[in-house]
């Protein structure tokens, strides 16, 4: 019912799969009382006792890739999911380079060298039309999942916060805020200083829709810059070579 593969992806995915498994047990079994009792016992154990033996760092996946890809790339006909990590692509030297380009160090238990990154490659027919890639970012009240939607040459065509805990989350998750990022590239974000929050050029033009949540706004910009740098290292640099 659960496979190691599912668990390897990330802790949260594993938990999700277990929940789904519990739901399947509950919904598919016939409703005779004894069977139902058994089903709830099983579901109960899955939820409360089930362990996840593969302890990988937590990644950032789309909640519902089929639906999300169709929404972000209406013209797409399919997608491919690629898993990678800094550890896999270049180890410590790569981490140092990413940190240098970001202008900030990686910190905490969520920003480690072995964090798995999920890159969705989007296709129309056999033609690659773009990428979706998300990263986790520490916000004021919880984790923020920042997804960027890129064209094949690395230009942003979308920006999307999948999860955010804040009273003002709605404003930052609003499509209007996301639209301000359209057309920006990594070059623009190179002029954004994540340490001070000072920006120049096009990034300076991005307006914070929730001034009360300045910390989360800056976190979103840092996440975007980090996201673009990682995409550059993982995908575009490789294409150039």
């Amino acid at each position: 019912m659960r496979t190691a593969l599912m668990e390897k992806r990330s802790g949260s995915a594993a938990r999700g799969s277990r929940k789904r498994a519990a739901a399947i047990v509950l919904s598919t079994l016939p409703a005779s009382p004894s069977v139902k009792r058994l089903a709830l016992l099983l579901a109960f154990l899955m939820l409360f006792a089930g362990a996840s033996p593969a302890w990988a760092a937590v990644g950032c996946d789309l909640n519902d890739p089929d639906r999300d890809v169709a929404r972000l790339f209406p013209e797409s006909t399919g997608y491919k999911t690629v898993y990678t990590s800094i550890l896999k692509k270049g180890g410590k030297p790569l981490l140092a380079q990413v940190e240098k380009r970001l202008g900030d160090t990686f910190k905490g238990i969520y920003e480690t060298i072995d964090v798995p990154y999920t890159i969705y490659e989007i296709f129309t027919g056999t033609k690659k039309v773009g990428y979706i890639h998300g990263v986790n970012q520490k916000g004021q009240f919880g984790g923020i999942q920042v997804f960027v939607v890129l064209t094949v040459d690395g230009q942003m065509r979308g920006f999307y916060i999948q999860k955010m805990t804040s009273q003002y989350a709605a404003k930052l998750r609003d499509a209007a805020f996301g639209r301000q990022f359209a057309g920006l590239t990594l070059k623009d974000f190179e002029q954004y200083d994540v340490a001070t929050g000072k920006a120049a050029g096009k990034v300076a033009g991005i307006k914070n829709p929730a001034p009360e949540a300045e910390a989360d706004f800056r976190a979103a910009l840092r996440a975007t810059k980090k996201n673009l740098i990682l995409m550059d290292e993982f995908v575009f640099e490789e294409q150039k070579r």
Binding site: S12, A57, V58, G108, Y110, Q137, K138, G142, T165, S166
Partner: peptide, 23 residues
């Protein structure tokens, strides 16, 4: 551990209970 990882929390950080907006 996994909850903290997912929410990027460390000791000293704040967390916001949704619906109730309690920190």
């Amino acid at each position: 551990y996994e909850a903290a990882e997912l929410e990027t929390r460390e000791v000293g950080d704040m967390i916001l209970m949704p619906e109730k907006n309690v920190q």
